[in-house]
Nucleic acid binder design. Structure first.
Lengths: 224, 224
DNA sequence: CGCCGGGTTTGACCTCAATCAATAAGGCTG
DNA sequence: CAGCCTTATTGATTGAGGTCAAACCCGGCG
């Protein structure tokens, strides 16, 4: 079975070289840590199955969620600048991740230009994702934030060839609210409101998107 | 005169190799573009003197400021992921920047490991800065946001060996408010309030920090 | 010098989301 | 199965910050 961690356009031999470095860790239990804030940076991680959240604690000890990662997505770049992870990353459910030692990845990049190029793309995608989140947080209403999150999940599930309309949210309302800069109550109310408008069907963590078009309009345009 | 664009720990010969690639562009007029959203990504830029803002436009055409860059800081990484800049970058005042062609930087990185390492640090610093902004936007009051911005400027001026207490804000109130996810009026009011509390002296774009300690407390702790 | 015109400040009011509080719905454990 | 604890929903109220509007300030220019 081919390695699914880094979907590279490299040939068999190169893939083999890559595979030998990548550690396929045993499945993580829900709430189990991948790495914690302050730990020495050694590796980046790819989600193989399940899901992961990253978060940091503010001065008051409140948790600020900074990202959700789904299968095929990479996390851990936040450790590179200062050689230690800024965030803590934990599994949201039973999850398996690939550990990719950064040192090895660098060496491999020296040998195989395609890999180096790909690594740069991966890092800069994190920048773009963060900037999209900044724009969402800075200038949008609660409805727009929630709608955007659901659409983002939908798109990312589609990339995994999974249904983009029936989604299962692996994180709690509280984690969603932290990520979006809202309160649990507001998230709950917005989901309720969107359901009442027949854009969604909400059942606990199962969400069915009934009217993607309308959701998109709502997410991007001025309210109503 | 030594090159100030990339403060690297490299020897004279290496520095020379680097210098020959870097284009010291003629000074930019206030409001002049460095690059615009959608333009093909070719280079990153270092601020030499003056200041730069980067921003994107949302679906309604409203401007969302995503960063302010001061002398010694690097911008333009947002273009790497998709080979085109996501943001537009313009000079906030008369500004000079160094253009550093990314292709050349990569080649140089192959020859000089110290440079490659440094480039990675630079990119990942952008990630950390963005994540700090995310945390600021998601979980903080207007006062905390404004105080944090002022402190950030103060720290960055200190890095340039400039006064960390007397700052001149090169951007408008409107640009600050966009960056912090507030309105112009709120920014203005908060600055007024901080002045009344004798933490600041505000005179148009000149800000004097009178009580850094108190500002820091205010920025990190729960209000009052 | 006096008249614009942008940016900024200040004031009055209102609204959206936070807060406070109560209830409901599961999931575990004994 | 009862009891408990965590998470989610729903309701009532409050308040921080947004909106609208007016005044102000200052630089440019006829």
């Amino acid at each position: 079975m081919g390695n699914l961690c880094l979907p590279l356009a490299v040939d068999e031999g190169e893939r083999h070289k890559l595979d030998q470095f990548i550690e396929h860790k045993k499945p993580l239990q829900p709430r189990e840590k991948v790495f914690h804030s302050g730990e020495a940076f050694t590796s980046i991680y790819a989600v193989r199955s399940g899901s992961v959240k990253s978060f940091c604690l503010d001065s008051e000890g409140r948790e600020q969620v900074t990202g959700f990662y789904l299968p095929g997505e990479i996390f851990g770049w936040d450790g590179l600048a200062d050689d230690q992870y800024q965030n803590t990353a934990i599994a949201l459910e039973t999850t398996s991740v690939c550990e990719i030692p950064y040192e090895k990845l660098e060496q491999l990049g020296d040998a195989i230009p395609a890999i180096k190029k790909y690594v740069m793309k991966l890092i800069s995608r994190e920048i773009n994702a963060d900037q999209k989140l900044i724009a969402l947080l800075a200038g949008h209403s609660a409805q727009q934030k929630v709608a955007s999150l659901l659409l983002s999940f939908s798109d990312r599930l589609a990339q995994q060839k999974r249904s983009p309309t029936r989604l299962w949210l692996p994180m709690s309302r509280s984690e969603i609210s932290s990520y979006l800069g809202l309160t649990v109550e507001t998230v709950s109310r917005v989901l309720g409101a969107l359901q009442k408008k027949n854009l969604l069907k909400v059942n606990k963590k199962e969400i069915e998107i009934l009217d993607k078009q309308a959701l998109q309009t709502l997410a991007t345009s001025a309210d109503e």
